[in-house]
Nucleic acid binder design. Sequence first.
DNA 1: TTAGTCATGTAAATCGTTACATGATTGG
DNA 2: CCAATCATGTAACGATTTACATGACTAA
Lengths: 178, 178
Amino acid sequence: MARTSRTPYVILGLLSVEPMSGYELKATIDRSISHFWSESFGQLYPALHRLTDQGLVRKEEAPTGGRSRHVYHITPEGHEHLRAWLSEPPGPRMVRNETLLKLFFGRDMEPEVLKEVLRAQQAMARAEAAGMEAAMEGLRREEAEAPELQYWLLTLDLGLRSARAKEEWATAALEGLG
Amino acid sequence: MARTSRTPYVILGLLSVEPMSGYELKATIDRSISHFWSESFGQLYPALHRLTDQGLVRKEEAPTGGRSRHVYHITPEGHEHLRAWLSEPPGPRMVRNETLLKLFFGRDMEPEVLKEVLRAQQAMARAEAAGMEAAMEGLRREEAEAPELQYWLLTLDLGLRSARAKEEWATAALEGLG
DNA sequence: TTAGTCATGTAAATCGTTACATGATTGG
DNA sequence: CCAATCATGTAACGATTTACATGACTAA
């Protein structure tokens, strides 16, 4: 559990790029920052209400036909709030890696199971790296004019390098196990 | 939040190496798996009680003078339970990286603040890599005979490679920003 | 004597996921 | 007509941290 939820900041950040509905926020999160962040509707909708009460976002009714739809806009105070958070140095990440936890106790695993876990990690890392590369290419093509492009690429680049490191690690580990 | 807590498995895993008290479990976690896992007393003590009720660990009174102390031993059923969990393929990790979240919104940051964040990441990654190397050397020296050695080194090796990847990423990013 | 460490525990508060509930629209 | 998608929300449950409470032993 984080001492304070980051959900409001994710919302403010995304709304600073473009006004959106809660549903669209969820879709955007899943599409563009899912490699390092996730949110559920159960967090998003209540957070949007709180942000509205605090005057950090403004709600606008924008129904599609008879289908209700609320588009949220960031307010100047909201933008200020976002910038204040961005200026704070990020605290120490909370680390919880279940795969490493299992490997740490690898002595109690069947050698074949252990190798399978590593092969799975290797394959996943390879796929992840390919995904990052594809996403980077896609961004460069489709968002060539976006002023945020370099920042978005930055996050993908760490994902790519991490995935490659993980793949090399799994490969080396499998070799080491014979 | 994880659907089901991993705390009991961490406990079983560590107790499979050596019987320990709750306090020692916490110290061991902080010392040897802190680079990929953490637990708090608020989780550990209740979990130890539950595990005792389930017969997966056995409690033994081992006071130090007038200071109460409970040493927990893993039972055969506990070991079975641990092995069953280890055989399950690890699920997809939940990803939440606050630093990347901030960088994603880097357009709203002062360029100097952004660079400072990256330099801090670079320094942290360098220190982390050095720490991993030191820990690996330490393990190789002090736990040379431990049958778990190669598994422990495995987790440190991923930490080392990831730290290096991060350092290279931060360096490249700083160059890219001019 | 006092700070630090060893040692065990609980309560409050919050965070976050999952499941559920509801209803309109669109495309096959 | 039916499934998928768009759209908004709540309730229940479990996970986790933080703060608090208590007390003994140890070394400066």
